[in-house]
Simulated assay, not measured.
Amino acid sequence: MTDVRYWSFHPNHRTTLSHFFTKSPWNEEKRLEKLQEWILRQIERLAKRTNQPLFLSMDDPICQKTRPSSRAAHAIQGCDWHFSHSDHQWVWGHSLVWLMVHTFSQAFPFAFRLYDKTAGRSKIDLAIEMLSSLKGKRAQPVYVLVDSWYPSQALIEACLKQGFHVIAMLKTNRILYPKGIAIQAKEFARYIEPNDTRLVTVGNERYRVYRYEGAIHGLDDAVMRLAWKADEPMTPDYLHVA
């Protein structure tokens, strides 16, 4: 707030500005809607000028907090225990589901939702809700980028309904149906030989990549890449699926 007052050249004390922001009546939904419209205009103009697709990135970071004492009169509202994949343990804090809109060169935070375990709504539900706010046809192709927790049937169908493409990491236990036979990706990978793959270079890394096209659990037609680093064994332990 001190910085906002400084750069606004407001002559009064910063508490006056703080009072204005905290006490004045705000139509938050309307302000967010106008902000999102401005963001989409900016990003679509850039994408059209540079002939780039639009990307929608989704994630669920944890804003970690200090665990309150059992004698604390007022714990931080909305905090709970959440599993942190970066820390490999349960941490105390807020879990947010957020959506970024970007091209290759510029990105904007578009929307976020606080995940509350007691509210009865999953992270998938919150993600679909945010994606539904992107209404209307886009001139450029749109790709939704998510990690292995999000590519459920419900989210994929919601994206396809709006004409969005989905690029996602998948868990290695995802069920595939090669020739109609149900098998986990990590088990299917045991039958892939080095000669069945292609060497692909990404940056300074080289990968052995196998292309699978067909049915997977929750989707009748999908294209998947099963990949290993070229200098690592082609075993399920080193497998990446997308």
Score class of each variant (00 low, 15 high):
Glu129Gly: 09
Gln64Phe: 02
Ile62Met: 06
Thr103Pro: 05
Pro141Ala: 08
Ala111Asp: 15
Ser57Cys: 12
Ala75Arg: 15
Gly136Tyr: 02
Ala73Arg: 15
Gln153Asn: 11
Val142Ser: 00
Gly93Met: 01
Trp92Asp: 03
Phe164Ser: 08
Gln52Thr: 12
Asp80Cys: 06
Tyr115Cys: 01
Ser70Leu: 11
Thr172Ala: 11
Gly120Thr: 10
Tyr115Asp: 01
Val142Glu: 04
Ser84Trp: 02
His88Trp: 06
Leu131Asp: 02
Met169His: 10
Trp90Asn: 12
Ile175Thr: 15
Phe108Val: 06
Ser152Asp: 08
Ser132Thr: 11
Arg121Glu: 15
His85Trp: 04
Gly163Phe: 09
Asp60Val: 07
Met58Cys: 09
Lys137Gln: 14
Arg71Cys: 07
Leu170Lys: 04
Lys135Tyr: 04
Thr66Leu: 12
Leu126Pro: 00
Val101Gln: 03
His94Arg: 00
Ser57Gln: 12
Leu99Lys: 00
Ala168Val: 07
His165Thr: 12
Gln140Glu: 15
Trp92Tyr: 15
Phe108Gln: 14
Ile124Gln: 09
Pro109Lys: 04
Arg138Cys: 05
Leu56Ala: 13
Ile124Lys: 01
Ser95Lys: 14
Lys123Asp: 06
Ile128Ser: 00
Val146Cys: 12
Pro61Glu: 06
Asp80Met: 04
Met169Pro: 00
Ala73Trp: 08
Leu155Gly: 02
Ser86Trp: 04
Val142Asp: 03
Ile128Thr: 07
Cys63Tyr: 15
Pro61Ile: 07
Pro109Asp: 05
Pro53Thr: 10
Ser152Leu: 08
Asp147His: 10
Val166Asn: 02
Asp125Cys: 06
Ile76Met: 12
Asp80Glu: 15
